[in-house]
Nucleic acid binder design. Structure first.
Lengths: 175, 175
DNA sequence: AAGGAAGTGACAGTGACTGACACCAACTAC
DNA sequence: GTAGTTGGTGTCAGTCACTGTCACTTCCTT
């Protein structure tokens, strides 16, 4: 979508607050009205990989072996999504800079990851995990993955999966 | 503040989307402009206990005994804040209903609790806890407290602190 | 009494977002 | 082939969240 690219450019060039949706639309060669037919609001342009991510991760939970404990299911979901992260790397980096500079976008980012966590919880409960346990597992998994992910983008050398395992041990050590 | 009460009433009566900031101001007996001198935006009226909460919790971490491990510090912070939760109970309940019915407010709520987590992380690192460990502990603590808090509002019978301990064991069992 | 700080009202302006209607392609049915 | 349907778009008008600016009051200080 050209709107996405246009927004990415403009937000990077002059900042989120200083760009109007009308400008984004203009750079993409369409009308402001058309912009709002594709994205719900000014922020949403930067957050539409989410749906695919959610599907991949919930599918990973749904199709995992029966023997796995809840937290492993969650971690499995995250590692199943690593191809998406790797593929989206170049865009994700530009995006991250913009979000880091814009409180309104950070808010949306938190909402998205909260929604993702809810989706994982729902995938777990559909497999029979009781809801309170599912909540705890999903949030623990998110914490573990965030920790691993930070280490990953920091060094960018190691394998993500092994970093996840390592972070799990760290969490275990904390409890 | 009368603006807070006015907003609470109007959001409950006709819903968040269907009330204007102008109406809130009018019910409080002031101008819309005055509303925006007190609150940054239409959502913020419902979220200003946050500052006090953050101070109490970070102070609890800063003033705890030296021997406590990171996760205990975080849980200590949450239990230190329970008087605030108890005191704010009646308002919190009305507030919760409104937030549950309004995606925009849920977004803000997530942002607030993320900001709180960041504050706890910072309080931990100021005590010498390395940042990655602090992040993990803060997020684990948040997960534990959420679980305990849900059980608390559900039954409303038991002591919150013991529910926190119980939730900690649940998390330990998951790892 | 003079002056400064803090809170407010009035007013004008920008920009995000919505609803309604018309237009134009491409594809389907008959 | 023509009619109708579907999906994407432009246009226009309108609402409302939010901001900058100026003037005014009140209260507190010196």
């Amino acid at each position: 979508m050209r709107l996405r690219e246009a927004a990415l450019e403009l937000y990077a060039e002059r900042g989120y607050d200083a760009t109007t949706t009308s400008e984004i639309a203009a750079r993409a060669g369409v009308t402001e009205r058309t912009y709002f037919r594709h994205f719900a609001d000014k922020r949403e342009v930067l957050f539409d990989g989410e749906a695919e991510l959610r599907e991949v991760m919930t599918a990973a939970i749904a199709s995992a072996e029966d023997s796995l404990p809840p937290l492993s299911l969650v971690l499995r979901a995250y590692t199943a999504a690593t191809p998406l992260f790797v593929a989206g790397r170049p865009v994700a980096e530009r995006r991250a800079r913009i979000i880091a500079a814009t409180p309104a976008l950070q808010e949306r980012a938190h909402a998205k990851s909260a929604a993702l966590t809810e989706a994982l919880i729902s995938a777990l409960t559909q497999r029979g995990v009781p809801e309170p346990t599912a909540r705890l597992a999903a949030r623990a998994g998110a914490a573990i993955f965030e920790r691993a992910s930070r280490a990953w983008t920091g060094t960018s050398a190691q394998d993500l999966t092994s970093l996840v395992v390592q972070a799990s041990h760290e969490l275990r050590a904390l409890t």
